[in-house]
């Protein structure tokens, strides 16, 4: 989904809304105002604004998503320990209730803003925008956004970040990518966490989990990681360094990056924006 034209119109569905297509007129043959906007257009505009804010400060924003209890906060603690002398980090925490996670991060000496969503099952771009008002970005290198623990809804909301990291702990089952394809399609990186427990689990095969990810046509790398044994921590921090370096290059070139999820819509956005297509299209009434 894009920021301005809602270009979920792709080569595969464009014929439906083009003139004469079955979505260009109503049941009784009358014309309809064709809108062609993503349903989350408002969120996406805010996300675009957030991303500009991150880019202006040269910050890499990484969204961590997973089911509850897969180790997002523990990963942040280990990441802070590994990178505290190298980069300035900050964290935006999302939970339904409590400041527990923000307190864990602050105890490591890193600024953390806690968003409590009440009953909302995901963070959206407006919540992150509000948090950014409380989080000075000057001097910050990487902002982690720890999304609400949920393998469904967070995948649908662009927050204005640059990369999605999806955690899958080995206690959850190696078929999770097949069960939650929308979430795992959105991953720029899959982290298989708590791998120290593999020694006592006989029903989780990391290769099967990665194979399930490939079935989603995802090229995202998969890193096996344990914050207890430190397996994979070097690979994870190396990925972060590469992404921060790439972000700095983009910023120098006045470019930006969007997380995985909807590359076709993004590609089409540029094509349609280039042709200055109007936001509304009036189609002739059918007799």
């Amino acid at each position: 989904m894009c920021d301005t034209c809602g270009c979920n119109i792709t080569p595969g569905n464009g014929h439906l809304v083009a003139s004469g297509g079955k979505l260009s007129r109503t049941e009784d043959g009358k014309a309809a105002v064709t809108v062609l906007r993503g349903l989350l257009d408002e969120n996406d505009l805010q996300a675009h604004h957030n991303r500009e804010h991150f880019d202006r400060h040269g910050v890499l924003a990484v969204n961590l998503m997973s089911s509850p209890g897969s180790g997002k906060t523990a990963l942040l603690e280990a990441t802070i320990d590994a990178l505290r002398h190298e980069f300035k980090l900050a964290v935006i925490e999302g939970d339904l209730e409590t400041e527990n996670d923000a307190q864990r991060v602050r105890a490591k000496g890193v600024p953390a803003i806690q968003i409590t969503t009440g009953s909302a099952c995901h963070l959206d771009a407006h919540m992150v925008h509000d948090a950014l008002h409380l989080l000075p970005l000057t001097g910050i290198d990487i902002v982690f956004i720890e999304n609400v623990g949920n393998l469904v809804c967070p995948a649908s909301f662009d927050l204005g970040h640059h990369r999605n990291v999806t955690l899958l702990s080995v206690t959850e089952g190696d078929d999770k990518p097949a069960k939650y394809p929308v979430m795992f399609r959105a991953a720029d990186l899959m982290l298989l966490t708590k791998t120290d427990l593999l020694a006592v689990l006989d029903d989780f095969d990391p290769q099967r989990a990665e194979a399930a990810l490939r079935q989603l046509a995802s090229e995202a790398p998969a890193i096996r990681l344990s914050v207890r044994s430190h397996e994979g921590l070097d690979a994870w921090t190396a990925w972060l360094r590469r992404e921060l370096s790439a972000q700095r290059q983009r910023v120098a070139q006045h470019a930006s990056a969007r997380p995985a999820g909807q590359p076709d819509g993004h590609r089409l956005h540029h094509r349609m924006a280039a042709s200055a297509r109007p936001g509304y299209v009036f189609l002739p009434a059918k007799p």
Binding site: T10, T26, V35, D264
Partner: peptide, 19 residues
């Protein structure tokens, strides 16, 4: 092969409104 491009299927789109 798993190197495929999605042509359609991830839409969440307001197509038209009859006023």
């Amino acid at each position: 092969d798993w190197h495929t491009r999605l042509l359609s299927g991830d839409e969440m789109l307001l197509a038209s409104v009859e006023l």
